[in-house]
């Protein structure tokens, strides 16, 4: 990617930077002026003239700075020219101003006091450079903010779309399998059939919400409903243990993150009476929820495009600022999902 210029031409935020920087410098001068007058400075008339000229020169330097910023020069030449113009304008104009001041006030500079001229001059030059810097900072800040906002909006939109796609993915296969199970339960075990319908309804209602984060309690309730459905289907071949206590109930977590991990575990590993699958959901150190399962990969590679974990990783980073942590050994597969404190939301 081509590197962008720090001082772009024709950027529409320049007028805003100009106005705010000017307002800032004028305000400071007014404050100083008011302070000098109210403290009964004997040279208040002189201070007034000095500050007046200071504002004029500041505006002059601004105009030259903006002309430079908007020119076609390369970044380094822009900086160099701005510095030179500050010194070249600052020096003589300061000298002239002081001469003018001295003639008006009839207080000529004493040769011994000539260092005052130098110090006052450098103050002007420093002020000019300060203004230049200020302008640059404001322009960069505004530009970055616009860029970040744009990027964030894009990222969120993208993730939202993928999240919606994820929900779509879940639906048909899971729904029809569940309906089939329900059909098998009805008439044979009506009580379980009723529970099954209740859990199915809870689960689908949860997947239809559009929240970007949910509380851990809500996610765990949803996971319980989802697990109950799986347990009816797989019987003793599947064990799911949820033990997260209640300390972090009101902390936040990306929605359907735990369900994604449980679903992944059931998709990739053997589930049979001879090789049952164990999944545990517990708390891990550092405000993480840990989903851990035994590893016994299915013989043929599972048709999976590997979006689940990537999607979860991106959502966790965006919503909590922390990434998920994945660990794999020969026997277990563990994923830690970060939580966000309710205070930080």
């Amino acid at each position: 990617m081509e590197r962008e210029s720090l001082f772009p031409r024709n950027i529409f935020t320049y007028p805003l930077a100009f106005i705010s920087a000017t307002a800032f410098i004028v305000a400071i001068h007014v404050v100083v002026l008011v302070a000098l007058i109210s403290y009964g400075n004997s040279h208040s008339d002189r201070a007034f003239t000095a500050i007046g000229s200071h504002i004029i020169i500041a505006l002059w330097l601004y105009l030259t700075t903006f002309t430079i910023l908007r020119s076609r020069m390369a970044d380094k030449w822009k900086v160099l020219t701005a510095v030179c113009s500050a010194i070249l304008t600052g020096g003589p104009v300061v000298y002239l101003t002081i001469l003018l001041q001295n003639s008006v006030l009839d207080e000529p500079i004493h040769p011994i006091e000539s260092f005052k001229f130098l110090s006052t001059g450098s103050v002007y030059v420093i002020t000019a450079l300060f203004l230049f810097l200020q302008c640059t900072v404001i322009v960069i800040w505004i530009r970055n903010r616009q860029k970040t906002q744009k990027i964030n909006a894009l990222v969120i939109e993208n993730l939202r779309n993928r999240y919606l796609a994820l929900k779509q993915q879940l639906s048909p296969h899971f729904l029809f399998n569940s309906l089939n199970t329900l059909r098998g339960l009805i008439g044979n075990d009506d009580e379980r059939a009723i529970d099954y319908v209740d859990n199915l309804a809870d689960m689908f209602r949860y997947t239809l919400q559009e929240k970007s984060v949910v509380t851990l309690r809500d996610e765990l309730d949803f996971l319980s409903a989802y697990s109950a459905l799986l347990l009816v289907r797989f019987g003793s071949a599947l064990h799911i243990e949820i033990d997260c206590g209640s300390e972090y109930d009101d902390w936040y977590i990306p929605p359907m993150s735990l369900q994604t991990l449980v679903e992944n575990a059931t998709k990739h590993n053997v589930i049979s009476d001879t090789t049952p699958l164990h999944i545990t959901i517990s708390m891990a150190e550092g405000e993480f929820v840990r989903v851990s399962n035994g590893r016994m990969p299915k013989t043929d590679p599972v048709k999976s495009n590997g979006t689940g974990l990537l999607n979860l990783s991106e959502r966790a980073l965006l919503l909590t600022g922390r990434d998920i942590s994945i660990n794999r050994t020969d026997e277990t597969f563990t994923v830690d999902v970060p939580l966000v404190s309710p205070l930080k939301k």
């Binding site: 979006t307 990537l310 990783s313 942590s325 994945i326 660990n327």
Partner: peptide, 16 residues
């Protein structure tokens, strides 16, 4: 089904 992501090792962690 083309893979949309790979689980890779980076330092001591696995990343998608």
């Amino acid at each position: 089904a083309y893979r949309r992501s790979f689980l890779v090792a980076y330092k001591d962690k696995l990343l998608p």
